[in-house]
Design a protein around this nucleic acid. Structure first.
Lengths: 333, 333
DNA sequence: TGACATTAAGAAAGCGATTTCCTATAATTG
DNA sequence: CAATTATAGGAAATCGCTTTCTTAATGTCA
């Protein structure tokens, strides 16, 4: 049923080697023979068998992508960028949702490795620990880690501390003093914690005391933001601004504020982080730290493909962020 | 560098065949030998080469997934379901964004076929035409088409006409008579058009004249919804409800309404379609036609894997929807 | 105890491509 | 024009695994 290169060769009256040469352009083939081969391919609808091919060329033109939750806008935009650039370079991506589960994450790495991907782009959920480091160190392909520095790996990320520092400073300059913060997991070892560092640094710089009860642990979900806001506002009536460590939580915060009948930004200013697509759309539009998410995705693909071809395995690329000022924050006296 | 089954065999002091049997459990191997093989695998970090394997077993355990835009919430939830169930059955998914481009769509099919996927799940962007039918008819793997009936293919979908009819009826029963409709593309041949049919059917049934200027062509994007609302409300001051053919456009509609200072649902009711995750979150919460998106994804995986194993290629599965009543609609006199 | 059935493990073929090595023909050159 | 060099295309090896076909060893039964 499915045609092989031999079938095509027979029909075109040439050897399989010649068919291969026509397809890949690896060696000159006369015009006349080329035409015969092309015709045979067209006629048979032949598609070369990728398994057989990668067995000999030792490349699959497949990129593995591991992310915690594909239905999170941040990740879907990222993937869109990754896929687009991968496609440009003739790669396809194998997607693997690690959920929010470390074992599953390890499983994803192993599965992708077994599938013979040429490289893996991943965003670790919470931390990167020994089992994953062991896999990375053993494997012979390059890895790109997004949003987190990671040994033996190419990392691409914004300067979380700095961006968060700037965002906090922006709120302070608007006159806010009682700025609450909804973080990621306290035992996270990357973006969440770094963003908290930036927040604290800005407060310190302006001589504003860090109040532990204005800092609330979050989980990057809408509900986490909602609950965080509830907890914060219930006990701290003086809060004038809330800075959430990602946009999804910021929208949760806004929902709570709206639910208790307050207005944004009149009563409370809200600042997010990430600048996912809907933050420019949904009302009120969110003031947030902009990450060029799609571009980071594209960069990840481009970089890993370069790494595959040139053989390097480590780098640390910082991309620029910036504050997208929109409607959810305002100046106060 | 990378270990092969031969290396493992040598270290364990057995033949490659035996190693294969231990890994796959295809034939009994004595306990003692099994242990030696397992140890060797552990020690070497051996991962079997998927290319070599699928070359002989003629299966890749890979599912192709083609969707127009992964950064659209509807599709990302879908993919989450697909991936989750695929993982359960030991499959991985290769994702391919077709963008909103027919040529690219065809390319995606061909690329996935070449990669040797065992089946393809797709959501066509606008219509399915000859080039794609040709591919489907020629291929020896099963296809699942989401949200659209399609020849020689297993389709899974909600009854768009019926659900849309019910939604419109719901608005009518709330007292609305001047119900505007923002459709998909007018030349779409599936969900968009079917949803419009349902809308018209309900109006007819209640003796409400269909006013062509209350129907506006949309494109499934936020901006499309926003612009549509603008166009509709600019010229038809009597509109009391707007029914958009998907949630993203419904949020665009709501944004426009808010921007001109009107209130939802006090001044205008808004109805969506799809019930993506954020529709339960963002305020005001959207009243919308519920599709069990994640479940449809799971079902797609399960069904296609069954089709792969049992060899069938055609079916038409209708899943139940229903109206999720929330905050964006209200009763009027 | 001899004949037969069972069982574990090895040898070797084969999956469908690519690629190296080789040959036959055409082209080039002194 | 003979000798050398280019060039197109074929034959066969190879990639790493699975699987069929054997074989040797053990167990069973009359």
């Amino acid at each position: 049923m499915d045609m092989t290169i031999k079938d095509v060769a027979k029909i075109a009256g040439v050897s399989p080697a010649t068919v291969s040469r026509v397809i890949n352009g690896t060696k000159p083939v006369s015009e006349e023979v080329t035409k015969r081969v092309l015709d045979a391919i067209e006629k048979t609808g032949f598609k070369r068998n990728a398994a057989a091919r990668s067995l000999v060329v030792k490349r699959s033109n497949l990129l593995g992508v591991i992310i915690p939750d594909i239905s999170n806008m941040y990740f879907s935009e990222l993937i869109k960028g990754i896929d687009s650039m991968a496609h440009f370079y003739n790669y396809n991506i194998i997607l693997s949702s690690s959920s929010t589960n470390e074992n599953r994450e390890v499983e994803c790495f192993n599965l992708l490795l077994e599938k013979g991907v040429d490289g893996i782009i991943f965003t670790a959920y919470r931390y990167v620990r020994d089992p994953i480091y062991k896999i990375i160190d053993r494997a012979s392909i390059p890895f790109v880690s997004l949003n987190r520095k990671c040994r033996n790996t190419i990392s691409i990320r914004v300067d979380n501390t700095k961006e968060s520092y700037e965002a906090t400073k922006y709120l302070i300059k608007l006159g806010h003093r009682n700025i609450a913060f909804i973080s990621g997991y306290f035992d996270d070892d990357a973006s969440g914690i770094q963003r908290m560092d930036g927040y604290k640094k800005a407060l310190k710089e302006y001589g504003i005391p860090i109040r532990q009860n204005l800092i609330c642990e979050g989980d990057f979900t809408f509900k986490g933001g909602y609950n965080g806001a509830e907890k914060l506002l219930m006990f701290n009536k003086d809060i004038t601004a809330i800075f959430a460590v990602n946009d999804e939580m910021a929208y949760g915060v806004m929902a709570y504020i709206q639910d208790i009948g307050l207005k944004i930004p009149k009563d409370i200013s809200v600042m997010g982080f990430d600048d996912v697509a809907y933050s420019q759309n949904f009302r009120p539009r969110l003031t947030t730290v902009h990450q060029p998410i799609y571009d980071i995705g594209e960069m990840a693909s481009k970089t890993i493909i370069k790494a595959i071809n040139e053989g390097f395995r480590e780098d640390d690329i910082i991309v620029k962020g910036g504050i997208a000022v929109r409607e959810s924050t305002r100046r106060i006296e």
